[in-house]
Amino acid sequence: MSEAVDAFNIMVYRQLKRFVRAKSRLFGSIVNPLIWMVFFGLGWSSLFKGSMAKALFGGYSYLDFLAPGVVMMTVFMGGFISGVTVLWDKEFGFLKELLVAPASRTAGMAGRAFGDALVATIQGALILAAIIPLARDINPGGIPVTLAAALLTGFAFTSLGITIALKISSMEGFHIIVNFIMMPLLFLSGAFFPIDPLPEWMKVLAYLNPLTYSVDLARISMLGSGSMNPLIDTVVLAASSLILIGSAALLFREATID
């Protein structure tokens, strides 16, 4: 048992170390969401004005509406992409080191996912701090809940990234994943626009997307209200995390080398 804990902890250590080492990656992961917030957010908010706009965005200005979405986008992309970097571990060999180790593979993979989730949460917190001056209605008391939701979100999507990376076998697959999985998940999450007015088929997809519940939970905690029950959001997120880390661990347990 203590060996499994060691394997978990050491993988958290590894992911945090890698994060601290790669300053350019840290910079990129923060600049990208800021660009969205400033150019996309300010751009549309100059169009969405007055009471009609507030009716569209649940009673908030567009910038306020967008802020929780951008925080969760940061966490989602950070977690998902670091999960997919298992592809790099495959390509550059570190995965073999784990595969031949006596330690529990499940514990190791869970540790990796948790380490990346922590990193993604830190990125989300930095973005949150940066956009508070832009979005005026953010409730500071809701920040801890937002960060807890971020951690769960990070964990879920790192696990998804790992699962996908273990399934595919070429580095070339990376861009396909980004374009065909990451972007649709992002756009169908309610981060940029409300889900309810969408066409029926998009709505169905949005409700199947765990990120929808993260964004809603962040909106509830940061602004005060969202479109669903926070309890449902939490349960769906926790369940998705479990299922996704489970599938990642299962795949990793059966993995062999090539």
Binding site: R21, F92, K96
Partner: peptide, 14 residues
Amino acid sequence: FQDPSVDRELTGWE
């Protein structure tokens, strides 16, 4: 292993 299997971002000690 035949191909390197170290973590290139980390130090040798790590």
